[in-house]
Amino acid sequence: MEFKTKTTSWLLTYPNPNDKIRIFCLPCAGSGASIYGQWHKFLPKDIGVYPIQLPGRENRICEDPILDMDSLVKYITNSILPYLDKPFLFFGHSLGARVAFEITHNLNSVYNKIPNCLIVSGSRAPHIPEPNPIHFLPDNEFLNAIGKLSGIPNIIFENKELMNLFLPILRADYTIDETYVFKDKSPLPCPIIAFGGVYDTEASEDEIQDWSAYTSNLFSYSMIEGDHFFFKSHVEELLNKISKIISSYKVPS
């Protein structure tokens, strides 16, 4: 397969056939794939980093966002299937962790494929619902609640046109996250490695540890300094840990 740099709908680039291993990255609520745009600089060159772009943001701004988990999982699964011909892992932060978890189950049950490892970050275990849902609130109250999480640049809140663009995306992502209902499934056969923020009010250390129930394989977790967005504020520390995880699964040259 010839390596192509043209964008796809769900991936920003076609995967490189020379990859030794691939990591597919799922964004948190309201974010686009570019949040992982610099990760390749911190990882070995033979590790392919492929952020997944959801409809309604960045290069897919003209598309309607998806409002339910099942549809999102099916679309992403079908999109990445051709590129699971190399060892692969998933990374997801917050909402992205739950999406990655459901994609992993879908691949395992329907296609008999499983990642070498599922890496979840800043997310309560799947059976723990959002204690304070906000997706149904009127616009002003909804935006005020999101503003308290401090993950969205002030320039967006201060610009009405930008806010009008982002509001449907935010509401869609929070709807998916907060209406998600875990359906009891057998533990995954792949390892799960979890990361949490020491000061994260969205996912406590105990809630991070609870991911251990979802694998029949190895489980480990690490807490990193920072709040819910530690994966951005402490990206080098996180990627040093992830690099070691990925390297342990690479096929030798």
Rank of each mutant, 00 (worst) to 15 (best):
I224A: 04
D19C: 06
I114F: 08
A194T: 07
L137C: 07
N132R: 13
F3S: 11
G92Q: 08
D46H: 11
S186L: 15
L84T: 12
E237R: 14
Y50L: 04
V198D: 07
E58R: 09
Y75I: 05
C117D: 00
L170P: 00
I192Q: 11
A33H: 08
H234K: 15
K244E: 11
Y199A: 13
A97Y: 03
S79V: 03
L81H: 06
M1H: 12
I80R: 11
W10I: 03
K160T: 11
V49Y: 04
T5H: 02
P126I: 02
I47R: 04
K86L: 11
I193G: 01
I169F: 07
C117Q: 14
C190Y: 09
L118A: 04
S186M: 08
K148M: 14
Y83H: 12
L89R: 03
N18C: 04
C190H: 09
C28D: 02
P129L: 14
G32P: 08
F142A: 08
F142D: 12
T215K: 06
A145I: 03
N106P: 00
W39K: 01
F229L: 11
L72S: 02
I193Q: 10
L84S: 11
N132W: 00
Q53L: 11
F182S: 01
L72G: 03
P153E: 11
L149N: 06
W10T: 03
L54P: 01
F136A: 09
D200K: 11
T8W: 05
S204R: 07
R22Y: 12
F219E: 07
L89G: 01
I155C: 05
K45T: 14
A213V: 01
P44T: 09
P82G: 08
C62K: 13
N106S: 15
F142C: 10
E102P: 00
S109L: 06
Y83G: 05
D46K: 11
N106E: 15
F157Y: 15
R22A: 05
D210C: 01
D184E: 14
G92P: 02
F24L: 10
K86R: 15
E225Q: 13
K20Y: 05
N164H: 12
P87A: 06
E237V: 12
L118V: 02
I193S: 03
I134G: 09
I169T: 11
L89N: 12
C28E: 06
Y199W: 02
F88L: 06
F101G: 04
R57H: 13
E141T: 04
F136T: 10
P87G: 07
T8N: 08
H40K: 14
D68T: 10
T5N: 09
K20E: 13
